[in-house]
């Protein structure tokens, strides 16, 4: 009896601890409760990323390459500030104040300014898809592990069909901040992994580090690509067969003039129609543009880490489908595209 006591106490403590965070173990078997808890976990992760102050180094390993990035995020009232500095390869800084994103390449003296709300209805993505997440993924908290010096809940998201990848997530216990994430292939192999190697949570805001650099762009070539919201149908396209779980969340015409390239091709910018579909967790972009023999040399299918790309010619058009989903999903998207007129 005595020997069993600690185990019972431990189990009770563990249960109350997880309840304290608003997520009990997902063992009820009731789909409604499971859906609610899945959403609770994901909302918690999203909220932490948006509302917490944190700074750290993220290491992403995909397809045999490793890249590290310094990231700092501050939230002051309703304002969000973010600074992202690439630590490998060419120097690149991203400064974000709410929806305005400056991407700066100091060595090339080029800056790109973008309005994120032109792209999509973020942060509506999770809300739009959250109830469907449970329909297409099975979320289970499986363990508590230590990542980058913090205790974290380990969550496994298993896809319920073959149209998407699985995920293993490490969410910090106290805040829900995502500390580590892995994208899992069909056989459970890790396709891509990203993790904080160190992170400080709940730090003091240093807004100057985000706001000041974008005011010092004298002598920079500042590019402001304009994204025009549109609809596929208005552009003469339709997706006759979608992929289960994926809903359209954005459709824009974007210039593809190589904003990040130093040499801009002469004359008019190339336009591409970008339509984004999401299943609430991951998303797929479809780019449609006029076929150009010089640029579009050959159809191909590539995989870089978890990101798959399918490119092919459809008559007078060049179709590129891209996303962190299995090849079959991209093929289904590509096959479903139809020219209306």
């Amino acid at each position: 009896m005595l020997s069993r006591l600690p185990a019972v106490v431990f189990a009770f403590a563990a249960a109350s601890a997880s309840l304290a965070y608003g997520q009990s173990a997902l063992t009820s078997g009731d789909p409604l409760i499971e859906a609610r808890e899945t959403r609770a976990w994901l909302t918690r992760i999203q909220d932490a990323a948006n509302k917490r102050n944190f700074a750290g180094t993220v290491v992403v390993s995909a397809g045999g390459t490793v890249a590290s990035t310094r990231i700092a995020h501050y939230c002051e009232g309703r304002d969000q500030f973010e600074r992202i500095d690439s630590l490998d390869g060419q120097v690149r800084n991203v400064f974000r104040h709410n929806d305005v994103v400056h991407t700066v390449w100091p060595q090339r003296r080029v800056a790109v300014v973008e309005q994120r709300d032109q792209m999509s209805s973020f942060p509506g993505l999770l809300q739009a898809g959250s109830d469907r997440v449970q329909e297409f993924y099975d979320l289970k908290p499986v363990a508590v592990e230590r990542v980058a010096g913090h205790e974290a809940n380990v969550l496994v998201l298993r896809p319920r069909d073959k149209f998407r990848f699985g995920y293993r997530l490490w969410a910090e216990k106290a805040t829900g901040l995502l500390l580590r994430a892995e994208v899992l292939g069909e056989r459970g192999e890790v396709l891509e992994s990203s993790a904080f190697s160190e992170v400080s949570i709940g730090i003091r805001s240093q807004l100057d580090s985000v706001l000041l650099p974008v005011k010092r762009l004298d002598g920079f070539r500042v590019l402001k690509p304009v994204l025009v919201p549109t609809r596929m149908e208005a552009e003469g396209w339709a997706l006759k067969a979608s992929v289960p779980g994926f809903q359209q969340v954005s459709c824009v015409k974007r210039p593809f003039d190589g904003a990040v390239r130093v040499v801009v091709a002469s004359g008019a910018a190339e336009q591409a129609l970008q339509t984004v579909y999401s299943d609430g967790l991951t998303y797929v972009s479809i780019f449609i543009e006029p076929y150009n023999a010089e640029r579009h040399s050959r159809p191909m299918y590539t995989a870089i880490g978890a990101t798959q790309t399918l490119m092919r010619r459809e008559g007078d058009w060049w179709i590129t489908v891209m996303g962190d989903v299995p090849a079959a999903t991209l093929r289904q998207f590509a096959n479903g595209i139809e020219r209306k007129h």
Partner: peptide, 12 residues
């Protein structure tokens, strides 16, 4: 960068 585009959104 911090949107939940993927569960690993801002991280990746």
């Amino acid at each position: 960068s911090s949107a939940p585009g993927g569960p690993s959104g801002f991280l990746r």
